[in-house]
């Protein structure tokens, strides 16, 4: 397991001055008031044939919130995240976007997906496009932005992740850490309401984990809404407003980092965390 990143000193990405642009969350409201969640799932089930992966998940993420989803391999974390933006189609249950059921027939799924950015474990950069175009194609195709505008925004976000000097590079010419930073810039370029991270550092060599986590740390501080499936416990504790612990296809326990890591209530949570502390 890679070492956790320093929580209070996210390294400045290299490169020239940051653009002025800030990632603007839709709402600055932090949990506390009666806010409407951006995305909510109710009694979400997912099976692959006989194999039941998700067994009823109730979950919500509010504007500006950073939620980390932890749990053992095979507990359903990634499947859950993929069900949220419908890369997997839930077997039953509801996925609500601002209260509207996105599983309903006739609902524009492609439109919904543009509101949720996704960062994959395997980066999934478009291999045929260079770094800049990776961040432009979605904007032009799905949001109908003019190319010049799309390029300008893409450059801004590439600057934010310290990759603006690599605009001409093809994905195969980049290291894993660089790829993942570009993937984050690609997701940000769509200016989504929330960003989903599916184990963003699991495919990285240990020495590259830091650069990606520091970028994510900055994003969390800027107020972006994030759902992060991760094995990086220290990072999760430091950046999250809330931790959800998944076990056997359900959310076994949920709460603020201090509570979940400091005084977990459930036996399974304790066992899981004990294995990490032991290492």
């Amino acid at each position: 397991m890679a070492g956790p990143v320093e929580p209070d000193g996210p390294a400045q990405p290299d490169g020239p001055a940051q653009p002025d642009r800030q990632v603007e969350p839709d709402s600055t409201a932090r949990p506390g008031g009666p806010v409407e969640p951006i995305v909510e799932t109710r009694d979400l089930h997912k099976s692959f044939g006989e194999n039941q992966i998700l067994k009823g998940i109730d979950f919500a993420v509010n504007p500006g919130e950073v939620v980390s989803v932890i749990g053992a391999s095979g507990s359903g974390k990634s499947t859950f995240l993929r069900c949220v933006n419908l890369l997997e189609w839930p077997t039953s249950g509801q996925v609500l976007y601002h209260g509207r059921d996105v599983l309903a027939r006739g609902y524009k799924v492609t439109n919904y997906r543009t509101k949720l950015g996704m960062v994959f474990q395997q980066f999934n950069l478009f291999n045929n496009l260079n770094v800049l175009d990776n961040c432009v194609i979605g904007q032009v195709n799905s949001l109908g932005r003019a190319k010049s505008e799309a390029r300008e925004r893409a450059l801004g976000y590439l600057g934010k992740v310290g990759m603006e000097r690599y605009v001409e590079a093809k994905p195969r010419q980049l290291s894993g850490g660089q790829k993942q930073r570009v993937a984050i810039a690609r997701a940000l370029s769509m200016e989504p309401e929330a960003l989903l991270f599916d184990e963003p550092t699991s495919a990285l060599d240990p020495e590259m984990v830091g650069e990606v986590l520091s970028v994510m740390g900055e994003l969390a501080q800027s107020g972006l809404t994030m759902v992060i499936v991760t094995h990086e416990m220290a990072f999760a504790r430091d950046v999250s407003d809330r931790i959800a612990f998944m076990d056997g296809g359900v959310i076994a326990e949920e709460g603020p980092p201090a509570q979940l890591f400091g005084a977990p209530e459930k036996e399974r949570t304790k066992e899981f965390l004990a294995r990490f502390h032991a290492g």
Binding site: L87, G117, M118, N124, I137, N141
Partner: peptide
Amino acid sequence: GQTEAAKAVGMKHWATMRGV
């Protein structure tokens, strides 16, 4: 993964085919 990434940025089937 290429198709998934294209879906994730809201691209439709034909756009994904042509562009990616």
